[in-house]
Design a protein around this nucleic acid. Structure first.
Lengths: 196, 196, 196, 196
DNA sequence: ACCTAAACGAGACGGTACGTCGCGTCTTCGC
DNA sequence: GCGAAGACGCGACGTACCGTCTCGTTTAGGT
């Protein structure tokens, strides 16, 4: 992520820092997590953190990204809604898991720090959005999805409700939400046309 | 939110604090805004802030709530989608305005501070969600909305995409988004059934 | 010694800082004494030290000066050598006392820091040298001292040997040294002229 | 001062370190001179310094001692005061030269560090004091110096004034000081006995 | 119109964390 | 096996803010 000699870098320090940062952020949130605590818990000098990351948010970004890993990959079985169900279940699982509360803290930090926002978007969001759009495009070609919709709008419609619950906290993200959202989104809000 | 004698309270100090907090938060975000700056800019002793608010987030909550005011009230003309369009346009305007960037900062701060989250929810979100549900309920009774949907799900579906864009920043909130969301949400994603 | 509002200054903090600095410097020398230790031992925030003094040496200078106080004042009984004996005994006592080891540390620090050197000279040395010169001048007028000597040279001759022992440490300063120096200095090194 | 295999030692490294240390100490004093600067300036790994010296003071001690070299040797022409004049002129030259400011820094460092004090005394001071005492003893035997004086007292009387000026800095060491001190010290402070 | 108690502007205080510097050690190459 | 290079764990630096705590100084009701 930066400058000094990558080859001499201590793996032990790196993973201890990522683990400590995650733990502390889970316990007390990102704002109350300090570099000093991370260093102490990871048995590491503060300089070693600053040498490789510009901020605690950057540390957590790397840690969270490693955690999220392949858990949110997009399958393609040919059945769009089955695939969406699978993938969105992964997303809902992560967003509802206390293990990933640092993910929400990062989004919080991004509101006040353009650097964090940029890194978060580039490293975490955009690759997944891109994958989602491609899956949707294929579905469109196969007639499983209206041809006249903007795919990015669809992505926002599908995932917006999860982020809404996770960040605004009117109620918690659940796995049941996946069915609810998919059902609503497929059929739309209009009442069925009257028979006859 | 208080204790001392409200009647002796200085209006001048109160509004200077709210204004200073808003300005500073707009310029540098909530995280980089300090009590000392607010006090200095408002020509106020720090104690005067701490006397009436528990934290800078609380100050901003009050300031933001005053700003948002009636701008997001729900009309009821009898036409659900016209009313939704009106109200969501208000929301989109606020979420896309730099003047209300502190609103997003507050949501950010809420991720790490349960007190902020609670106050934000109670003072800002829940009243508006409640109003939205009531409007939707009336529409349901009038057959303008499927009868078999959970109204809170609908609220999340309608507003999630705006918060998604505002907080994740894949692209900015725009007024055009109101039409896009409403159109998608009314018809659903399924392709039209083939004729005959 | 500096800028903020002197009237609001906490006496408790000031004397606790001076005492802590003296203690720590006596135990471990000035170089190994840290601002952090001083603050901790004095139950004081570091900022409170930096608010009133520019460096740990400045703290010690004030502390030492307060300690030395009137102990090195010059008497004038009319008998030069009796007065010198009295005053030099005071000096020898201080230079040989572990309580004033910070005095030597200060001289040490002055070798590398012009600010310390200047303050030390102005606050501690010059007033005493001035008093000594005046006493010597009066003695010169009364014929108790050669008229053709530079008084500053005399001061250096009288006190140099004490600082030499204290700083170079070939052997410790003692009270007996007062007699030795005075005796040597009065008579000179030349052997007595042969009787004849 | 060492341990590893002296024979494999790099002369290039050794002299580069000594030169760099001297230069840096002359520019900024010993306290502000760091091992890292010395290593960088000498194009040397830090370990190479720590391998051969225990501290930066030890490096400078060796460097200074090499500089002082034979410049302060004691001659013996048979004329005590001529020889003193010669030798003290050497001392005054060194003490007044900016090239040897590290010498004073060392004395400063010795005030807070017993190891430095010990090494300084053993390597630099004691041999020269010993030489001085021997020269003075011979002079005593030859009747050029009072028989009833302690020779170490005499050494302190002769050199104290130079160290006083050098370390306390009331005024700078000069070559003229040699004459002044010798003159005073030979004749003493007492006024001449009245004739008759 | 005066009195008095409160809220006020100001800012020093005891602290915690910041991001940086330098320490002395350790590790990895190349000669 | 010494030397150049530099990452490491660590501790202190001097600064920025925290939230609390006096200080006078307004300022408003109550008399």
């Amino acid at each position: 992520m930066t400058q000094p000699n990558q080859e001499r870098r201590s793996d032990r320090a790196r993973s201890a820092i990522l683990a400590a940062a995650l733990d502390l952020c889970r316990e007390q949130g990102l704002a109350r997590t300090t570099m000093e605590e991370i260093a102490k818990k990871a048995q590491v000098g503060k300089q070693t953190i600053y040498r490789w990351w510009p901020s605690k948010a950057a540390v957590l970004l790397e840690a969270v990204n490693e955690l999220a890993g392949r858990a949110t990959d997009f399958p393609d079985t040919g059945d769009l809604y089955a695939d969406l169900h699978t993938q969105m279940t992964g997303v809902a699982t992560l967003l509802s898991s206390p293990r990933l509360s640092p993910y929400l803290s990062l989004i919080g930090a991004a509101q006040d720090d353009p650097d964090v926002a940029k890194s978060f978007l580039d490293a975490i969001i955009l690759p997944r959005v891109q994958a989602a759009r491609e899956r949707l495009r294929r579905a469109q070609e196969q007639g499983q999805l209206r041809a006249d919709v903007d795919l990015e709008d669809v992505v926002e419609l599908l995932y917006g409700p999860f982020y809404y619950r996770a960040l605004i906290r009117t109620r918690p993200v659940t796995l049941a939400q996946v069915d609810d959202v998919l059902e609503l989104v497929r059929r739309g809000l209009n009442p069925p046309a009257p028979v006859g």
